[in-house]
């Protein structure tokens, strides 16, 4: 018994150590953001941010267009995620439940689309939008993020739909529901964890994206937060305090989102994988 307790303590210690290592970079980001500039560039490390200053945060949020960027980011990213998830849910249903010609090719295309390096699609996407006359409009950005996230969301949701026993749906349909009704009443609620898990990924991808926003949007008040983050890194140098403060603020929404959905996210991931 004593030996077991000893090994349990050891395991816990390892657990704490791993937690510290994993969290340290994030701590260091926040700590740096709270230090006065003189303490940041110092040859003796200040492990605790003392004295604390909020000057970097203040500089960060008072940059021109911060509010516009924040609003644009939220609107564009949320719109793209919602659109992507809804479409993907239907597409996932179509590929997981229905047999149609070209279905196999469609699945392959989805896999292929995921292998495409995003940076290389910059110019093709620009040309597509230029031909469509959509440049410099926020919906174009929504559409771009929608297209960029769609292959992944379809692919992941397909796994989730496949994990839902088809019998449930059939039972609903014999009870008089249409296929769509069965989808809405039976499949959709069961799909919820999957939708959460998938939307988190779509959210992060779109939230982070910098180059497409920069190229598609021309006017500065139509840009997004990653562009604001980049203003702290100029050709002439990096303002560490400002960058760290901005990074902290930039991370916060994602973090809040994550902590809120963490439990569902993990159970969703494992549910989807069973039949993945």
């Amino acid at each position: 018994m004593i030996r077991r307790r000893g090994s349990r303590t050891l395991v816990n210690l390892v657990g704490v150590a791993v937690a510290l290592v994993m969290a340290f970079p994030v701590y260091w980001m926040a700590a740096t953001a709270l230090k006065p500039s003189g303490d940041i560039l110092s040859s003796t490390p200040h492990v605790l941010p003392w004295p604390v200053t909020f000057e970097h945060f203040q500089t960060a949020v008072t940059r021109p267009f911060f509010v516009d960027y924040l609003r644009n980011s939220l609107v564009v990213v949320l719109a793209a995620v919602v659109l992507s998830i809804l479409t993907a849910a239907l597409a996932a249903l179509a590929v997981a439940r229905l047999r149609w010609r070209g279905r196999r090719a469609y699945l392959l295309l989805i896999i292929l689309a995921q292998t495409a390096p995003l940076e290389a699609l910059l110019i093709p996407a620009f040309l597509v939008l230029r031909d469509a006359g959509l440049l410099n409009r926020l919906p174009a950005l929504v559409l771009t993020y929608f297209m960029v996230t769609l292959p992944f969301t379809v692919w992941t949701l397909r796994g989730f739909v496949a994990a839902i026993p088809v019998e449930l749906e059939e039972a609903a349909m014999t009870d008089g529901c249409t296929r769509l009704g069965a989808f809405r009443r039976v499949v959709f609620p069961l799909l919820a964890p999957g939708l959460v898990a998938t939307s988190v990924f779509a959210f992060i991808t779109a939230w982070n994206e910098f180059m497409f926003a920069l190229v598609i949007m021309q006017e500065q008040d139509k840009l997004t937060l990653p562009v604001w983050l980049a203003t702290f890194r100029t050709a002439f140098g990096t303002d560490w305090g400002g960058t760290m403060a901005a990074s902290t603020l930039f991370t916060l929404p994602v973090l809040v989102f994550f902590l809120l959905v963490q439990r569902r996210l993990v159970s969703g991931m494992s549910a989807g994988a069973v039949k993945g």
Partner: peptide, 12 residues
């Protein structure tokens, strides 16, 4: 701690 590390956007 894991969620913290996960949530940081790659740019940051």
């Amino acid at each position: 701690a894991l969620v913290l590390a996960w949530a940081v956007p790659p740019i940051s």
